[in-house]
Design a protein around this nucleic acid. Structure first.
Length: 420
DNA sequence: TCTGGGGTCCTAGGACCC
DNA sequence: TCTGGGGTCCTAGGACCC
């Protein structure tokens, strides 16, 4: 018997997190918004039934929301991140190989020779996750990741929350009803290309000539064909450190002052560098960008600049200086800015030291300083130790909107301890 | 009035090298 | 007069994911 993959997907994850801490939301239509309260990015089943689409701008659905008393929440990432960790930890219970694919999804690889007990184990795991974390999950099983993904979409609609797409019989039956656009890795563009050559369903794609598909659409699509046939081409991805790390946000209100933009970019630089240190990396370059609002008819301006670093770096104060220099170079007065961001580029492991002894010593001091800051922020709440540049004054005026924010139930201190 | 914030991989083409 | 062929690295852009 071959491999078996499982895809575990938290049902309506952000909504489910809110429901854990406010059970009155159960069985009611609920939506969670993107940063800045712009779009709807998570919907309860009840909200889906009201035909509120994924990614819909909130303002276009105000009427439906009001008339159906849909509960609306701003996104609360500290809460969702913490709940995600709890779910992922629960998944380790069965000691299958695990790949955390996103905040609300994970693949498992089951290497047992005998697959007969799997469904039972998986059903029990699902029950435990619900009991331990309060989050309902759906689990799809299949001989490849792509088939496990499809199985998951069936599991979501099933009573048990688990579906195994193991036999050819089931595969024939299910794939016939899956549109190509709904296959993992295929979206609108590729979908319409496939339709142009008469392939509209997963079954038709599975039965197509792999070589012809490769010629026409490349290796990625060819792999999908094999995956649909049950020949595994995509293994679990090891949790590799990220190669780039970004921090960007749109502002709550248009900004035209350079000072304010610098305040924001400073914040983003602090966050981004923190994330880089968190995965024990250093950046070899940064990219800073600034944008006006493309949905408005205002004068548009959109620019970014890249700086290489002389040596790999994860020191916040150095990155801040560079990011501010970048703003000096790309900022143009006379525009209403809407969004800015910083990307940390070409990350490499921090233990790759430069040979130069002098540099190494520099790292030591900087690394110690950063470690202290990270430790205190971690222990006493993010932002308790910060860098002199961040000005709190007037900040709320441009801060991302989140009118509907729930408490950070699992991570917030009621009172911050005093640090002198 | 109001439209998210992250990431990945692959390919084609140019520069450069022997 | 003749003006190869193959390899690697880098970058920009396109496609996808949640």
């Amino acid at each position: 018997m071959g491999k078996c993959f499982a895809l575990v997907d938290c049902n309506n994850f952000y909504v489910s997190c809110e429901r854990v801490f406010d059970p009155s939301l159960i069985n009611k239509p609920v939506v969670v918004l993107s940063n800045n309260d712009g779009c709807i990015i998570s919907r309860s089943n009840e909200a889906k039934l009201l035909n509120i689409p994924m990614g819909a701008p909130l303002h276009l659905y105000k009427n439906i929301i009001d008339s159906n008393k849909v509960k609306v929440y701003s996104s609360n990432y500290p809460l969702y991140g913490d709940m995600s960790n709890r779910v992922m930890n629960s998944l380790m219970e069965l000691s299958y190989e695990l790949e955390i694919y996103s905040i609300d999804e994970a693949f498992l690889k089951i290497n047992k020779q005998d697959h007969s007990g799997i469904e039972h184990d998986i059903l029990r795991m699902r029950k435990n996750i619900l009991m331990w974390t309060g989050i309902p999950v759906s689990i799809g099983l299949g001989p490849t990741k792509t088939l496990a993904k499809i199985a998951n979409s069936i599991a979501k609609k099933s009573q048990s929350g688990v579906f195994n797409l193991d036999t050819e019989d089931k595969q024939n039956r299910i794939l016939k009803n899956i549109n190509v656009e709904d296959i993992w890795g295929i979206s609108r563009r590729w979908g319409s290309k496939l339709r142009m050559i008469g392939i509209g369903t997963a079954l038709e794609l599975r039965n197509a000539s792999a070589n012809r598909i490769r010629q026409y659409l490349g290796v990625v699509m060819q792999r999908i064909v094999y995956e649909l046939r049950g020949i595994s081409c995509l293994d679990l991805d090891k949790i590799l450190p990220k190669k780039n790390i970004m921090c960007s946000r749109s502002f709550g209100n248009p900004v035209n002052s350079k000072i304010t933009i610098k305040d924001f970019i400073t914040e983003y630089a602090i966050r981004a560098t923190e994330k880089v240190r968190n995965q024990n990396s250093r950046a070899q370059g940064i990219y800073v960008f600034l944008q006006t609002n493309r949905f408005k008819k205002d004068k548009q301006y959109n620019n970014g600049i890249m700086f290489g670093l002389n040596f790999p770096c994860c020191d916040t104060s150095i990155i801040i200086k560079l990011a501010l220099k970048a703003i000096d170079q790309i900022y143009q007065s006379g525009y209403s800015y809407h969004k800015a961001g910083i990307m940390m580029l070409d990350l490499i492991p921090s233990d790759i030291h430069q040979k130069d002894l002098f540099q190494k010593n520099n790292y030591l001091l900087s690394d110690q300083r950063m470690a202290v800051i990270d430790f205190l922020n971690n222990k006493f709440g993010s932002g308790i130790i910060t860098h002199g540049k961040v000005k709190r004054k007037d900040r709320n005026k441009w801060k991302s909107k989140s009118f509907y924010l729930s408490p950070r139930y699992t991570t917030q201190w009621d009172e911050l301890p005093q640090v002198s």
